[in-house]
C-alpha cells in the first residue's frame, strides 16, 4: 500500500518485479562462494584467523541473501501476474538459496579443525574449490540473462542462449562430481597419515563443497523449467 501520497493513480497495477532481486540473490550466493574460496586458500595455508574472519563475513552475506529471498516470497501474492509461473519461480529460488546456505556450512566446518594432510590433498581441494566456483559463476551469468529475456519478452533466440548456459552449468557440475570422487578416494588412501577423525572432517568438507555445485546445477535445471513452461 502506498503511504499518503495523496494521489489516485495507475501505480496500484504495477507490482514490484521479482526478477531484479532474483539476480541480486544469485549474486549473494556467488559472493559467499568467492569468500569461501578465499577461506579455503587460507585454510590450506594454515591461517586459521583469516578462516574465522571469513566465516563471519559469509554469515553476514548469507543473511542478506535470506532477506532478499523473504522479500521476493512475501511480495508474490496470488494476485500478482508474472510472465512465468510463480510456482516455477519459487521452485528455482529454493535451490538458489541453498548455494549460500551450503557455502556457509562449509565455511563453518573449516573453522573447527586445522588441516593436517599431505600436499596432494591440498591440491585436490584447490581443484575442487576452483571448479565449484567456476560452476557458480557460470550460474550467475545464467541468471543475469533473465534481464534480457524479459526485455525481449522471451524471444526464441534469447531463450536458446539461456538454455545453452543451463547445459554448460550442468556439464561443469559433472566435472565437479568427478574431482569430488577422486578426492574422496585420495583422502581414504591417506587414511594412515590423516587419522580417522581427519578423514571424517575432510570427507565432510568435500561433500559440502560438492553440494554447492549440486545446488547451482539444480537451480539451473529449475530455471530451465521456468523459462520453458511459461
Amino acid at each position: 500500500m502506498i503511504k499518503k501520497e495523496y494521489i489516485r493513480s495507475v501505480l496500484n497495477v504495477f507490482a514490484s518485479s521479482p526478477f531484479k532481486p532474483l539476480v541480486m540473490h544469485a549474486n549473494k550466493g556467488g559472493d559467499c562462494v568467492r569468500k569461501l574460496n578465499e577461506s579455503l586458500q587460507a585454510y590450506c595455508n594454515g591461517d586459521m584467523e583469516k578462516v574465522e574472519a571469513l566465516n563471519k563475513e559469509i554469515d553476514v552475506i548469507e543473511h542478506e541473501a535470506d532477506v532478499i529471498k523473504q522479500t521476493i516470497r512475501s511480495e508474490l501474492s496470488s494476485s500478482i501476474m508474472l510472465p512465468v509461473h510463480a510456482n516455477d519461480l519459487l521452485n528455482f529460488l529454493k535451490p538458489q538459496d541453498s548455494i549460500s546456505d551450503d557455502a556457509q556450512e562449509v565455511a563453518f566446518w573449516l573453522t573447527v579443525r586445522r588441516l593436517e594432510a599431505p600436499d596432494e590433498i591440498r591440491v585436490g581441494f584447490n581443484d575442487l574449490m576452483n571448479k565449484t566456483l567456476e560452476t557458480v559463476e557460470l550460474y550467475e551469468d545464467l541468471v543475469s540473462t533473465l534481464g534480457e529475456l524479459l526485455e525481449t519478452s522471451f524471444s526464441k533466440r534469447d531463450v536458446e542462449d539461456t538454455l545453452v548456459l543451463v547445459t554448460k552449468v550442468e556439464e561443469m557440475e559433472h566435472q565437479v562430481d568427478i574431482i569430488e570422487k577422486e578426492l574422496v578416494k585420495q583422502i581414504f588412501r591417506n587414511e594412515d597419515a590423516i587419522g580417522a577423525l581427519g578423514v571424517y572432517h575432510l570427507a565432510r568438507l568435500v561433500r559440502g563443497i560438492g553440494d554447492i555445485a549440486d545446488k547451482a546445477e539444480h537451480a539451473a535445471d529449475r530455471l530451465r523449467t521456468m523459462v520453458l513452461r511459461r
Binding site: 496500484n12 497495477v13 504495477f14 507490482a15 514490484s16 518485479s17 521479482p18 526478477f19 501474492s77 494476485s79 500478482i80 501476474m81 508474472l82 510472465p83 524479459l150 519478452s153 522471451f154 511459461r230
Partner: peptide
Amino acid sequence: AGGLAAVDLSV
C-alpha cells in the same frame, strides 16, 4: 501479452 515483469491484478 508477457510484456511486464509483474502486474498486480488485485487493482
